[in-house]
Amino acid sequence: MRRAFLKRVAEMIRNEADTTFFTVDIGMWAIRDVLKEFPDRCTNVGIYEDGMFSIAAGMARRGLVPTIFGIQPYLVERTLEQIKMDLAYQKLGVNVIGTGAAVDYPKYGYSHYCAEDLHVIKAIPGCEFIAPGSAKQFIQLFNQTYRNGHPTFFRVSDHPNQNNDPDVEFGKAVVMQKGSKATVIAVSIMLDAVMEVCKGKDVTVLYYTTLEPFDRETLGQYYNNGKILVVEPEFEGSLTFDITKSFEGKPVQIESVAFPREIFRNYGTYEEKMQYYGLTKENIEKKLEVLIRV
């Protein structure tokens, strides 16, 4: 996904004179040619996230289309006031691409983990949050949004889906299958695991890659007695507000497979973390069974 993104950036800088790209000292090798050829619009700014957001906002104020690339926790947490003041409050469009989704840097400790990103961004109205499940989907969603004049955050994962890669549209859920016993919300890279569990079962599966704004309309059509299982690679409950709003007035029973809201103090591998925190097929299967039974 990261490679696809950087290739798209190089193409954008080459062909679109009003676009700018700033990396906070990562991914340079992949775009070394455009860094050299277009130093005014394509810059490695160094380790400089917060001020970079304000600078990018200033460039957007002058009609340019800035894109920033960095590591997720520094992009969405260090910069929170810049997101609020410079982007959202002033309604200025900047694209923010973050690598290091959730626990993609599994050996670096809590400084590099960022399961809370969606929750943080959802706290600032007017921001968009996109979590593609594949390189193809990243390109589709980036192309649909990068000029829309809004602050848009892309969560780039190193662990894309391998078996399921539907076309996606910004702001819309994909109905993967329809059923009547429950509705399963599969978020981003969790689609493969969800489909493996749900295939052949009488449940609806909705696939979400745009998490803000959340497609409440589609979810609202699949009430299924209010039984909702959300499978999300973020902090548990990041989508609860949207889910309850989708069924306003009706009771819902929400089960979730997600990262717990705690400080992760472990290391190891990505797979070990997903296993430890229960973002697994087995746990999805178990939660779904309970949800349907109770």
């Binding site: 304000s54 600078i55 906002a57 200033g58 460039m59 957007a60 104020r61 002058r62 410079d86």
Partner: peptide, 10 residues
């Protein structure tokens, strides 16, 4: 100030 720097750079 950083916002102004962005405008000047643009």
């Amino acid at each position: 100030l950083p916002f102004a720097v962005g405008i000047a750079n643009a």
